[in-house]
Amino acid sequence: MILAFALFKYFPFGGLQRDFLRIALECQKRGCEIRVYTTSWQGDYPEGFNVKTLPVRGSSNHKRMLDFQEQIQKDIADDPVDLLTGFNKMAGLDVYYAADTCFKEKAFTSRGWWYPLTSRFKQYSAFESAVFSSDSKTLSLLISPLQKPVFQKHYQTPDERIILLPPGISKDRCRSKNHNEIRRKFRHEFGLKNDEKLILLVGSGFKTKGLDRAIKALASLPEPLKSQTQLFVVGQDKQKPFIRLAKQLNTEQQVKFLSGRDDIPRFLLGADLLIHPAYNENTGTVLLEALVSGLPVLTTDVCGYAHYIKDADAGYVVQSPFRQERLNDLTCRMLSSNKKETWQKNAVKYSRSEDLYSMPQKAAEIIMQQALRKA
């Protein structure tokens, strides 16, 4: 069985990219040949993967995406596969992994009246309609329960074409037996004293993740807590606008930027608080990574996985409409609170009783079942 996967760009530290790789590896483990279509690939190639890097053309992202779609369709027509699974919306998919929120919903709620008149809106709407319209045949795998009614509102997608997957947190994020030793070594490596607090923000796409909100929350802390707190930012994105903001708020010495890394579990054990005040987030995988490691979380309710933090009583969720003053207050309260051990225990207990891990296996099962049905 030859299974094809399509994603516009691959880099090792993106959430969508990590999900793709784990699902594809799970399918390979079950005996399938893996073909990958992408426009760029950063990092090592998995053994046995046939990665086809397509040189797309176009003056804008949506035009390059259209060229990407057309090249995939042409290649598969010349060299057929049993099933095509996409991680970006496009026509011709058998299965779509819904890592993104509904494009139309965002366009109508956060853009001006003129936006639906643009070629960008028309093209991305066409991509989304090709996946979710009532007459499409694409099966969608959703990872956020919040998004199902949103897609159905815009496209009337039948229930049988939408499957909700459980989370898929990697077991290496779970709190290890020697977590205290790892924390001690981590904090020594980064020069963090016992009385210093470390706030952690993880994720590529700093604007969407709410890094500006996090920097403002740091700047709002009262003394001496403010001078004893650092913010580590781990991810890939443009840093300059946020460095400029930190300087304006006199916190540039307390904000440290680190590029995407593969040792996130150490950071989760070494920090005192994960802050994730996202503007828009389909799931927020890092929320669950923090949860299973026992790190208290402060996030916003727009994140698809925010309800797990509330269910586990492992931190606080800022309700919409967002208010910066509320985030500031909760940041101060969580860093000063004596509930840290309670949140940690609640998180670890919850992580041992709930299925937060099986997404790659469930997705691989569904993809292979669809390939058999198609055959």
Results as ranks from 00 to 15, higher is better:
368 M>A: 01
279 Y>E: 04
186 F>E: 01
199 I>A: 13
215 I>Q: 04
373 R>I: 10
43 G>D: 12
279 Y>V: 02
366 I>L: 13
41 W>H: 11
96 Y>K: 10
52 K>F: 10
28 Q>C: 03
37 Y>N: 02
24 A>M: 06
344 Q>A: 01
214 A>P: 10
124 Y>I: 06
71 Q>R: 15
268 L>K: 00
100 D>R: 12
189 E>F: 07
169 I>L: 10
357 Y>R: 05
281 E>M: 04
325 E>H: 13
368 M>I: 15
269 L>P: 03
155 Y>E: 02
355 D>Q: 05
275 I>W: 11
136 S>C: 04
48 G>H: 11
115 Y>F: 15
129 S>M: 09
49 F>I: 01
350 Y>Q: 02
144 S>M: 13
279 Y>I: 02
180 N>Y: 05
190 F>C: 02
337 S>W: 13
30 R>S: 12
298 L>Q: 05
42 Q>P: 07
146 L>M: 04
29 K>Y: 06
84 L>V: 07
328 N>K: 03
183 R>Y: 14
330 L>M: 13
354 E>N: 07
250 N>Y: 05
131 V>R: 02
332 C>I: 04
313 D>S: 04
20 F>W: 13
156 Q>P: 04
166 P>K: 01
170 S>H: 07
287 L>H: 08
349 K>R: 13
340 K>R: 15
367 I>K: 08
311 D>H: 14
145 P>N: 14
318 V>H: 06
141 L>G: 00
263 D>E: 09
116 P>A: 06
87 F>Y: 15
76 I>N: 04
320 S>L: 11
360 P>V: 12
153 K>V: 10
227 S>C: 11
351 S>N: 02
238 K>I: 10
145 P>V: 07
25 L>G: 06
335 L>A: 07
238 K>W: 06
53 T>M: 12
319 Q>C: 05
351 S>F: 00
280 N>D: 07
115 Y>Q: 07
307 H>M: 09
30 R>N: 10
166 P>A: 00
217 A>P: 11
258 L>Q: 00
309 I>C: 09
217 A>G: 11
158 P>C: 07
339 K>H: 08
287 L>S: 06
230 Q>Y: 11
30 R>F: 12
156 Q>M: 11
284 G>S: 10
141 L>F: 09
273 L>A: 01
292 V>L: 08
292 V>K: 03
125 S>T: 11
53 T>C: 08
308 Y>V: 03
246 A>S: 13
120 R>I: 07
300 T>D: 09
306 A>E: 07
115 Y>G: 06
241 P>S: 03
195 D>L: 00
140 S>H: 01
207 K>F: 14
143 I>E: 03
122 K>D: 12
7 L>H: 15
235 G>N: 08
288 L>S: 01
327 L>N: 02
1 M>G: 09
225 L>W: 06
